[in-house]
């Protein structure tokens, strides 16, 4: 959470410096942004690959555990797809790509602004940041209404780190491994699904 606030501060200071035109826009080469993005995706891969605990979970819970990230993907796409009908200027494809951030606002916004542009990038950033905050705030209520997997599902990719403490508290310790597993699968899918949805 401390990190999230710091990330927002960095982002906002970027906006302010951009507005002040201290740094000309042309001075940021697009290749630099994509190279840094590949480094980020590479390190995300390392963190997932080195996490042996999660691979063990798959053996314990069998294939059923895969249903958790699957329910997040299906539920997210249905939810944002349906609501995109009511939003002018947001096509179904855009809505699905934004939804495919699964709460991972930093990665999804950067990929989307690279592939489509800053406008959609900002919507992706705000949507996925709000999803994270919404999960943190509604977790106790979500468990009562939709059951113990609900905060894991609404947390999406963040259920492996940022929202994990809250999830463990409201759903119970036995759900922590499922939460990490689901978050990890969704984290891996963010950089794969967004380009497919925007370009495919």
């Amino acid at each position: 959470m401390k990190n999230s606030i710091f990330i927002c501060l960095v982002f906002v200071s970027g906006i302010l410096i951009g507005m002040s035109s201290l740094i000309p826009a042309e001075s940021i080469p697009k290749e630099l942004v994509s190279s840094v993005l590949y480094v980020l995706i590479f390190t995300v891969g390392i963190e997932v690959g080195a996490n042996t605990k999660v691979w063990r979970v798959v053996r314990t819970y069998h294939w059923k555990i895969a249903l958790v990230p699957f329910s997040v993907i299906a539920g997210t796409f249905l939810g944002v797809g349906f609501l995109s009908v009511f939003l002018s200027g947001i096509t179904l494809r855009h809505a699905l790509a934004i939804g495919a951030g699964f709460g991972y606002y930093s990665l999804s916004s950067v990929i989307i602004s690279q592939l489509d542009g800053e406008v959609l990038g900002v919507i992706a950033l705000m949507t996925n940041l709000m999803r994270e905050i919404l999960t943190l705030l509604t977790a106790p209520w979500a468990v009562r209404v939709f059951g113990k997997l609900a905060p894991i599902a609404s947390g999406g990719a963040t259920s492996m780190d940022v929202t994990l403490p809250v999830i463990t508290k409201v759903s119970g310790k036995e759900y922590a491994v499922i939460s990490v597993f689901s978050g990890m699968i969704l984290t891996l899918l963010v950089p794969i699904l967004i380009p497919i949805l925007l370009r495919g």
């Binding site: 329910s71 796409f77 939003l87 809505a95 934004i98 939804g99 919507i123 997997l149």
Partner: peptide
């Protein structure tokens, strides 16, 4: 406008996922 669109999509994604997980859990 962007803020409203984001709020709607965030709610849709989180709620849709929670509803789906309800059936999976059940």
């Amino acid at each position: 406008t962007v803020g409203v669109q984001a709020a709607v999509l965030a709610a849709g994604g989180a709620l849709g996922s929670a509803v789906f997980s309800f059936f999976i859990h059940k």
